[in-house]
Design a protein around this nucleic acid. Sequence first.
DNA 1: ATGCATTAATTGGTCGGACCACCCGACCAA
DNA 2: TTGGTCGGGTGGTCCGACCAATTAATGCAT
Lengths: 244, 244
Amino acid sequence: MNMPAARMGQITRNRLYEKIASLLLKKIIKSEMQVGEKLPTERNLALHFQVNRSTVREALKKLESLDVIEIRHGDGVYVKNYLESPSLELINAVFYLDNTLDTDILMTLLEVRRILVPEMAFIAAQNRSEEHLKKLEEIVFHSPDMPVLIRDMKVHHTIALASGNILYLILLNFFNGFFVDFGHLYFDIPENAERSVQFHKDVYEAIKHADSGRAREVMLDVLLYAEQAIRSYIQTLKEKGEGA
Amino acid sequence: MNMPAARMGQITRNRLYEKIASLLLKKIIKSEMQVGEKLPTERNLALHFQVNRSTVREALKKLESLDVIEIRHGDGVYVKNYLESPSLELINAVFYLDNTLDTDILMTLLEVRRILVPEMAFIAAQNRSEEHLKKLEEIVFHSPDMPVLIRDMKVHHTIALASGNILYLILLNFFNGFFVDFGHLYFDIPENAERSVQFHKDVYEAIKHADSGRAREVMLDVLLYAEQAIRSYIQTLKEKGEGA
DNA sequence: ATGCATTAATTGGTCGGACCACCCGACCAA
DNA sequence: TTGGTCGGGTGGTCCGACCAATTAATGCAT
């Protein structure tokens, strides 16, 4: 499946240093470099890629932020075990490494989302302030021109805010990042869009009445529904792929 | 509470560009700059901080990876809404912004961990391979010299690997990052260390017999226990703080 | 021979200044 | 009004130099 250019950009935009970073990352992820192995000098890398050392440095900084390398002043650059990285962006990078999506990873995201987001709704129903409730109402009932995809993301985002837990918020933002790419595949189907509109109303009511159990239940339902839709869509893709 | 230099380093090491990044981040988080506001030119920032433009650029790259700014070629640098960032490292950055820990954030981490990690153990018990089981056995039963703190982290890490879900793994790594700093406060207490040793054995047995429900239960128990210990410890800190 | 201070070489970190690529607003022409 | 052009400003890349930290070789004292 081809990716929209915008998101692919995460690490393969037109910036030279991002291309370099992507090339190096690929080598690390594909285990062409061993953990603990020393990378060539910044100067040598610059020579190898035929770019300036500054550019190499910016690429290395990128990889350092992904926690896949360690830069030691006066010593060198070493490969770290990417399986010990705490960086979510690493998932993006891997996800789009070959400009094709990894459906296995997508499944893992759905799995965690199903666990996490209903609890987030549960907490949000308990903690929500009047401001959050009002904001939610505004989105759900008074934004008729807003595309369902956008509205859905905003609903989730507002619930995350209402939970008062910054970690939920960040993870929700992370999930939403994928929606930007794939959401239309889901929301373009009228049945799914209608399902979401109903969900928005239901979850609003639950949160309004601080009915945390209900909020969790409603959230879980819609996630399971969407998950099923995505699974069958991917299944379709795979069958096509095999046929080609 | 003062922080160990190693971890504070995440964004305040001795590298000049990280100090610059930290200064700018502080302004953004404290909302001294509005979302959408344009930052000064790289050249002007260099002038302002009395550093080279390259250094400023590296700092900006850091902030870009935290998703708190957007750099537009030919245009400028703009402040983004950090509440929409999907970057876990942002939590670290905020956490240690003033070289003091934010106990509220710590609570949010514990909250999410309590939801997530038991499910991870559940999945791991289902998916674990013989290799993972063997690795777990090695850690739990045949590494007598390993400090309990380290052993505990490795147990969790191995379970995350066994879950086969890279997102669980990354989040677990993220949680472990905090353990490196605070774990000793917990494991230095013999009672807690013993509790963990027992947990390691229990969870190993559950995973060995692919008893996913039991694995989840065992995991939840130990997390609740640890959470309680941490809460009371923090409570102690606060009382001292008020007394001072 | 051993241990430790000194030194030299290597590597990442910072600097400064130059030029390229891109964006935008002002201005002009159709 | 529309469309194109151009100029100034901004980030992106480049170059070459020097600073700072690390490491390993050196050599001296024990």
